Amino acid sequence: MVRTFVVRGLLLGLLAGLIAGAFAFVAGEPHVDSAIALEEAAAAAQPAPADDHHDGEAEVSRPAQKAGLFLATGLYGLAVGGVFGLVLAGLRGRVGPRSDPALALAAAGTAYLAIVLLPFLKYPANPPAVGDPHTIGSRTLLYVVMLLVGLAAVAVAVAGGRRAGGGPWARWSVTVVSFLVPVVAAFLLLPRVDEVPEGFPATLLWEFRLASLGTQLVFWAAFGVLFAWAGERAARRASAAVPAAAPS
């Protein structure tokens, strides 16, 4: 069963990644082009350093970057899908809904919340021309820390909900509180990052961030639905094969 879930995750993750890539191409790339145009205009307005020997050409052309977008989202889908399938096989029958389709949808929604939405709310994505290149290491580290906090909060919430006594309301209350405590603490304790240059169009920044968040939403929604559909189809085939295998 583990092998089946991993292979299913790889294939459906690749498909969901390509779907998300198509969304990013339509909804996100125009904003990237606009941000690059602003960055190039700002660079052109500044005098070039005396020791600058670059020819001013981008190392990778925009057409190549746009084509590589689908490669990146496809590889992302492969990696995430394989890990998701492995984790789902471990959770099956232990945590969450009993049916495979419902478990897949619940796990995909939880993953989006923990590893996408929470880090995004604290450290949202930025287009080109936003952010100091010298702080990219520290900003990446902070983002990873927030991602780990999201995963830890989900694990603590699930464990707290399972161990809580009482009725459904008590268990849900413990689950929500167990999730919010580490998340709120991280939001308060981790430093704020604001490196948006003065004069950068707020509308462009907002639309780019929405497109970035939407790309992840499209990926996880497509992946969750596809995984649930595959699980339901496998269950139907298994149930249909039982009468045929039974002795007459």
Rank of each mutant, 00 (worst) to 15 (best):
E39F: 07
G165M: 09
L18H: 02
G74H: 05
A186K: 07
R209N: 09
A211F: 00
L78P: 13
P127L: 06
E29S: 12
V193E: 01
P182Y: 00
G161S: 05
A79Y: 07
V149W: 02
P133K: 06
A244I: 12
R236K: 14
P247W: 03
A125Q: 12
P191A: 04
T140G: 15
A155V: 14
W169E: 14
F5R: 15
L18R: 02
D132K: 10
G82W: 05
G9E: 05
T73S: 10
V225N: 01
A152Q: 04
A79D: 00
R171A: 10
L103D: 05
A185L: 15
L11F: 10
V83M: 09
S248L: 14
F5V: 06
V196L: 07
A27K: 06
V60R: 05
R192K: 13
A22V: 15
L14H: 01
M146D: 01
V156P: 07
V6M: 12
S138H: 10
A104Y: 02
A72I: 12
V158T: 13
L91Q: 05
A44Y: 01
A58I: 08
D55H: 12
A234W: 00
G137W: 02
L10A: 14
G9D: 06
G160P: 11
P119R: 00
D194C: 03
A152D: 02
P201T: 07
